[in-house]
Design a protein around this nucleic acid. Structure first.
Lengths: 147, 147
DNA sequence: GTCGGTGCAAACACTTTGCATACCT
DNA sequence: AGGTATGCAAAGTGTTTGCACCGAC
């Protein structure tokens, strides 16, 4: 049997996990880095990336592919997400996981299904406001141009 | 009103769309590039990226965030996907879109919900076989080591 | 002639890796 | 000592951008 490397819970890893538990907003690696640096000013970005990877492998945190960059969260319970199309923010969706979905697919697919992700997309409250503001400004400009 | 640039259907764009229509496997930008180059050997990767972006904006194709790189498809109809955890392959899932999901979230969220993505994950047939083979080999090695 | 599109190369953003040092047991 | 983690810098990947040229209207 391969003896896999022993896992050590270092201060860096503890703080990273802690940040992800507290932070509700599914931060990117860079955001985690900035947060962790408050407690550990000498931590390097490489350490953050390495540990986000290792902790994800270990199942202690979760990782999501974003459209730009990856996002992480400390909640390992299965749940769904809402993503803002304008600002990229990722939040938990108020909907319990629907277990039956996987069974529906198993019946008709040759894949061995092990899980699923459901992500809603739309506009967060702040970006809805921003869009309205932009729209108004656009209209004003048009009026001015037509004078 | 801003006069937005007029859209031209160039040969490059036609071929890109054509490739995506034919290709069932949700190729990456690089894969699209290699396919398109068969018809247009002088096309550049930058053109492929630019046009994948523009065609996505125009709603003629769709884009998905992968764990490594983005994937594209020519089918603009809403549908779900299955992703292989080992090889990253992305395929259509045999499950009709469930319209009620979005309404469930709208009731309890301040987001303006405009759509959703459902992605199943698991192992494709080929990678199931590969895992079994790897497992057997691992066992053999172990036996040999214990002699 | 104008405007949009292309190819090429350089720049970019995000992530991973190599290496010497430091830590823990 | 032996194995694991860290910080730093360099390298890697995938994607975007600047720019000169081209081609359709």
């Amino acid at each position: 049997m391969e003896a896999q490397p022993r896992f050590r819970m270092t201060p860096q890893r503890q703080v990273i996990i802690e940040c992800l538990k507290i932070h509700r907003g599914h931060p990117t690696a860079d955001e985690v880095f900035r947060l962790v640096r408050r407690d550990l000013p000498r931590i390097s970005l490489a350490t953050v990336y390495r540990n986000l990877e290792i902790l994800t492998e270990a199942g202690l945190i979760r990782r999501y592919a974003g459209y730009g960059q990856r996002r992480y969260e400390g909640n390992p319970e299965p749940h769904y997400h809402v993503r803002c199309l304008d600002c990229g923010r990722l939040e938990d969706a108020p909907l319990k996981p629907v277990a039956s979905l996987e069974n529906d697919v198993r019946k008709h697919s040759r894949y061995l299904i092990t899980g699923h992700h459901l992500e809603f997309e739309g506009l967060c409250p702040a970006c809805q406001v921003a869009r309205h503001a932009a729209f108004k400004q656009e209209n004003n400009k048009e009026v001015r141009e037509n004078v």
